[in-house]
Structures are given as C-alpha cells and as structure tokens.
Amino acid sequence: MSNTNDELIRIDSVEGTGCVVRGDDVDTDRIIPARFMKVVTFDDMGRHAFEDARKAAKGKHPLDDERFSDAAILVVGQNFGCGSSREHAPQALMRFGFKAFVGGSFAEIFAGNCTSLGLPCVTLGDSDLAKLMGTVELDPAGKIEIDIRTRRLTCRAGEMSVGIPDGVRHQLLEGDWDATRVLMAAGDRIEKTAAALPYSPTA
C-alpha cells in the first residue's frame, strides 16, 4: 500500500471479523521467519505469515482455522511484534488479510511499521481484551468495528474504549500515515538543518 503519489487515504475506522492469536511477547521472527526474507520484494510474505508456528500446530493454528478465514482484525496479547525491525512482519499479516490489530500492547518498531502501512494498532485493558478474545473465539462471524476518531471498539461483548497515541491517530485520520509526502513538505528546511549540523559524514 502506498499513499504518497495518489489521493490521500484517510483511515477513520476498520470493520470486520476477528481472529485471536493468544500469548504474550510474540516476536517478529515468529510472525515471519528470517528465511522467507531472502527476497527483494514483499509479494510473497502473506503466504509465510506464522509459518513455523502453523506447522508446529498441525492445522490447529488460528490462521488455519476456517472459521476465521475472512478475519480483518487480529487480536493479540502483550508486546506483540517484539524483536526484529523487519517490516516483513506487518507486510505478511497485511497480505494475509489483516487490516488492523487489537492487543494488550505492541512493540514500538512493529507499531511504527504498521502505521507506515496504514494498519492501526490499538490497545485494550486486560479485562476488555479478555472479553474480546472470548467473544471472537465463541462467535467468529461476529463483527468488530474500530472507530479511530472516537477511540471506541464495538463488538458483541459491548463497546470498549481503545488506546491509540494522538500522533498516530492524527496520521491515520488525515491520511498522513505514509510519511514521505508529509516529510517532503519541509522543502529546503531539510537542507538548512543538515547544513547546520556540527558534522558531515565525508572523510
């Protein structure tokens, strides 16, 4: 996905069914094992999302559960996406079909990469997260709506308030999540700042 040359894509809500991957500290090596990064494009990443975990689960992994096959929202635990900075991880999940993540907390680089791709990461407190996970597992066809503007999540278990940093919320709502265009707007202030630095990298 890219926003830079085209019309702005403003993201004010995400709607769809959910899928739950339980567990805390799910790292990006698990989301996309390094051996699948030996390519110069992101095209094939979706096929390998959670590949080793899915093989180990012998068909019982939530990503292989037919009831969740149309899911657009991945529900996860604490510190999701820790470890490597590889954008291949959110690329894999996006190409698998996810459009947003709801979790207890997210690792910082992972969340930043998601923002760059226009994929909201929103957080829930422990009891709401447990409720949402339970609801999705009981009723996989149940719709979830995440409203970025009002910071509300609606599902069969009720309405919940979600966390999202102000800056990221602004980027999604204004279509500024693809940062190149926004950064380009600074024009020659970039060169001026660079010229004022007390160092230059040439020997």
Partner: peptide, 19 residues
C-alpha cells in the same frame, strides 16, 4: 532501528516522523 517504509522516507528526505 526502522522498517522499510521508513528507509524509503529516509532515502527520499533524510528525515523520520517520530515522537
């Protein structure tokens, strides 16, 4: 440490949008 879209941002502008 940054992701690939930010590598693009840096190549294009030498800048990051960051809190």
């Amino acid at each position: 440490g940054i992701g690939t879209s930010q590598v693009r941002d840096l190549l294009a502008t030498q800048c990051l949008a960051i809190s």
